[in-house]
Design a protein around this nucleic acid. Structure first.
Lengths: 219, 219
DNA sequence: TCAATAGTGTCTTTAAGACAATATCTT
DNA sequence: AAGATATTGTCTTAAAGACACTATTGA
């Protein structure tokens, strides 16, 4: 019985120009050398403490992405998804503000709806991540990870609307954010420079910043 | 770099005597031969089409459990969880009516809150499955898979209440079931034999029976 | 002052829960 | 008929959405 090829793949998502985009990496090695695919790689049993650690290692190459929101998505497997043989890929997804993503020759952002030509089953993995994010965004504070701090409530609402693909009621949105209780206003600090009333700037409460990924059904 | 040990584990859950219980299997081989652990085993690259297929194969040993509700839970990994070395376990959970579970010397049901002594990280895997089931039960039709068909609405409500650990409003519960639109009354068939009004018997609509595991946020 | 967007008050609509009335069995 | 549980109607309460009004800035 042949061995199982064990890898991790990371779906790094961000919002650029109002569109949900995924970071693709140009593969250096076969199979599919030269094509754009999800960043990923073999699990390193000599250095990775677990697959999450492997996913973080994969992301460390990307400048700026230090400690993103990272959650296990699902595991994809089978004899045909990788031409090298029977393989398992533990997929993770990350959410980051678009300001942290630097594009380069070997790292480009692509709209999640236009992934023709990506190899393996990576289109399916991305679709799965997008579905998870859309779903969780409807009842949780997940989208705050896409906003660069500090941010205003109108900015955050726009992020929710872009992720969910629908416009939200302003009053209800603010009530919900108030209930979730994960944001705090930065006293006396407002947006400025525009020809209208400035908006209060917010940040994630310190207690929440690294706790948001702990619960199954995130708050 | 040493190889990764690839396995699947199955958390088969059912409700017996009003308590959520998990099927444990007495291990025939080392490590931990003779102790009760989650049913599982190596991924067979020569016969399994994917890890879900491997999980179904693991369940085929259990008489009566033919095509249960089965969903991928999460993947657990690391150098220490299995004494044989760096390992990955893709965990699935299954929900079945308790009438399908036959206990034997090598297959026993244990309440999910009393898993002292189970090896590996299986207690953590079970806890994770229980959390997932409790969470999904609050907004989906997941618990119907724990009811042997045909069932009455009061029986189904009791199952929801056992899974969620709280009593539910009867009117709201029935309204919600009506909205979910996954059940159909069996015309003219009622429970009988008890000294009170008989209850309408229901079954899952055929269109739903095998479609309930498809969506991320099951209906 | 005007245009533009932020923030809030309040009414309406919808969903959830409480409670009680009626229905239908066995004994 | 009495006792038990099923089923349904309806009132109350809570959440969500619609809409409009006030607030604050730069041009």
């Amino acid at each position: 019985m042949q061995e199982v090829i064990c890898t991790v793949d990371v779906v790094l998502l961000t919002l650029r120009e109002g569109v949900l985009q995924v970071l693709l990496h140009r593969r250096e090695r076969e199979p599919f050398a030269g094509t754009l695919a999800l960043p990923g790689g073999y699990v390193h049993t000599d250095s990775d403490r677990d697959t999450r650690d492997a996913a973080l290692r994969v992301l460390r190459d990307k400048p700026g992405v230090h400690s993103p929101y990272l959650e296990q998505l699902a595991t994809f497997s089978g004899p045909a998804r990788d031409p090298r043989g029977w393989s398992i890929s533990v997929a993770y997804y990350a959410l980051v503000p678009d300001t942290l993503v630097t594009e380069a020759a070997d790292a480009v952002l692509c709209p999640v709806d236009d992934l023709r030509g990506v190899p393996f089953d990576h289109a399916q993995i991305v679709a799965s991540a997008v579905q998870r994010v859309r779903n969780k965004s409807s009842y949780s504070s997940l989208p705050v990870h896409v906003c660069q701090e500090p941010f205003t409530l109108p900015q955050l609402q726009a992020v929710y609307e872009a992720l969910l693909g629908e416009s939200l009621n302003k009053v209800s949105f603010r009530r919900k954010m108030d209930e979730l209780d994960v944001l705090e206003a930065i006293p006396g600090v407002f947006s400025s420079g525009s020809a209208h009333r400035p908006a209060q700037l917010y940040r994630v409460k310190p207690a929440w910043r690294h706790a948001l990924s702990l619960s199954e059904r995130a708050i």
